[in-house]
Design a protein around this nucleic acid. Structure first.
Lengths: 230, 230
DNA sequence: ATATGTGAATCAATTCACAGCT
DNA sequence: AGCTGTGAATTGATTCACATAT
């Protein structure tokens, strides 16, 4: 397709696979590989080689026929597509077990993400620090979002309050919300909603695991399906 | 389609939506609703009404024309499809922040899930209890899996050890693994692999959030996409 | 009158297969 | 000789629209 610099319209499934490619490429670079063929990268990421090539072509990427892709160059392109160059500050709302786990998650900065602020209501928690980030009261949500220039928020609250907090986040200018609460949220179409419900994931696995041995396909799965647009 | 009792072959996207329907139906039942029309349930779950009806038809469900679906009956069918009747014991490997969060997650039993065992290597953690479940040493993995009759496991370990633990889990007879480590796992096709990588989800949101205001679609997302077979 | 269940149409992504480049 | 990039074929899910049931 060869879009000049910014791609036009990358299919959602492709976007969902980009972080996987990113990880694999970082790995190859670390191991000193110069070039990589689509077939090899495809095997490492569990993706069909033709699919991988088409994915890359959506980014306007360029491989060398007969040789493959230059690892470093390709990584740069994937990074740029994912916006890893400019770090995204994240606001985490709800500092329970899950929110805490997120805040402490180590491998964020390597992925262009930074937990910039933590919010909660519990007076026991507000005022403490988690992973060096102070927990502020959720009353200050709008102020904190603007202060940090946060475009992305994570909702790790009880389901009951998730919708109203999502509304407030949207109002404060957040552009995307990752909802970890087990509830279906509704938002204006200008706000991108992703949901990860671990219990639901397990229920899905239970469907396949419990039941008779279907033709159990699927060795590898791309993440981001939940956040990627339909 | 009307399969007698066991469905033949439910599309993966349908399976991924079942937990969402389940939650909505529990809610309707709690509120005393007798019947529900596909249009209403669809609105609540953010799914197209025709899609919802086709999903239900895959379960061999039966609504009443002119009236809708009986809430209690439909819930029973969804429960049965998801295997919520028989509780699934889960083994959680890796009791770090994320594993701990999972173990403490309240809403599991209502979903047919039970954290039956916790495993870790850290001598500081082994021997302690989390949410009433003792943390055992990962050396005992095979024994614990058999003792609990666990069919599903969660991998919440560092990425480096995830593959070898997945191999051991598969060897021990686990049928499905939810991988929370940021790494692509490979397994025999008899083992169902799902991956949830929160950082990757955020990267995907960053792709859309950072970038220009695409035709930002997607108000609601079904979970389980990662675990559902493609 | 109203809402289901489903053929048929549509839309989108995956995959094949090969022409074209190095 | 080898591997990319991509038209064309395929596969699969979503959605429309309506005949069918209550």
């Amino acid at each position: 397709m060869r879009r000049s610099g910014l791609r036009a319209k990358v299919p959602a499934p492709t976007v969902a696979r980009l972080p996987v490619y990113h990880r694999a490429l970082v790995d190859y670079e670390r191991r000193g590989l110069q070039t990589i063929a689509s077939a090899e990268l495809a095997a490492a990421t569990g993706v069909n080689a033709a699919t991988l090539r088409r994915d890359l072509s959506h980014l306007g990427s360029w491989g060398t026929r007969g040789t493959g892709y230059e690892v470093r160059h390709l990584l740069t392109q994937v990074d740029r597509a994912l916006g890893i160059d400019k770090e995204s500050p994240i606001v985490v709302v709800g500092v329970g077990n899950l929110g805490r786990a997120l805040a402490r998650s180590g491998n964020f900065s390597a992925r262009g993400l930074r937990v910039a602020a933590l919010l909660d209501v519990d007076p026991e928690i507000v005022g403490t620090e988690v992973a060096g980030v102070p927990v502020e009261h959720v009353d200050a949500l709008e102020r904190v979002v603007r202060r940090e220039g946060a475009v992305i928020a994570v909702l790790a609250t009880p389901a009951e309050v998730a919708q109203s907090l999502a509304d407030r986040l949207a109002g404060a200018g957040v552009r995307a919300i990752l909802n970890l609460a087990p509830v279906v949220l509704h938002a204006a179409p200008s706000v991108r909603l992703g949901t990860v419900d671990l219990a639901a994931e397990l229920q899905v696995l239970a469907f396949y695991g419990t039941r008779d041995r279907h033709r159990a396909r699927r060795a590898v799965v791309s993440p981001g399906d939940a956040a990627a647009g339909r």
